[in-house]
Amino acid sequence: MKPSMLSTASLTESELGQLRKAVSLGFANAASGLSLMVDRRITVSSPGLRIIPIGQVPGLVGKPDEVVVAAYLSISGDAAGHILLVLSPDAADDLVEMLVGYRPDAMAALDDVERSALGEVANVTGSFFLSAIADATDLLLQPSPPAVIVDMAGAALDVPLIAVAMTMEEALVIDTRFADDDHQINGLFLMFPDVASLRLMLERMNRLDE
């Protein structure tokens, strides 16, 4: 990955390494949060840090017109960014069943109970992720209330991407896959940090390291 690709935030290799370390901690913490909720072990893959043209981001999720269940959170406070949790409809149904004790009707739209269960999953994973990053940077990071989206993957991704596209040609995407041992719960956690915030986060990490 060439750091120069990201026009407004040329990241050095060592900064990328630092960032990777911080988000790994964040994702591990998010996985513990989810484990507590569903009472089973959840593991996360080693995070990908990609700087790619905005047009290529939907490809990370799969086919852009395939239906997904996504939950969106925006990050505010000392730093800004976006979090999108993406699940296949099957995985979302599994998750709802674990949380509320019944399986949603596959043919029907999600009802309020099911939506709020998935929103709570996003809330917990997002908050656990952010609290680990906040600890590593000593910054105040607050997640918004979650919004659950059942739609084409491309449509769900429009939500964070329009914000990124205001300032950038390329998106810095931090992603990880999470799954339980028998791969019943299996999904994608995407984070789009605001580039100005990224600078601040790196400075704070350096300061705290000294």
């Binding site: 047009g55 739609d151 491309g154 449509a155 769900a156 991704l157 939500v159």
Partner: peptide, 24 residues
Amino acid sequence: VGIGELYATRDPSAVLAAYGLGSC
């Protein structure tokens, strides 16, 4: 035709597609 892209052609066998338009 991906997000933020455009494409024009004379090819009669082509199908131009914009997948998963949300607010786009």
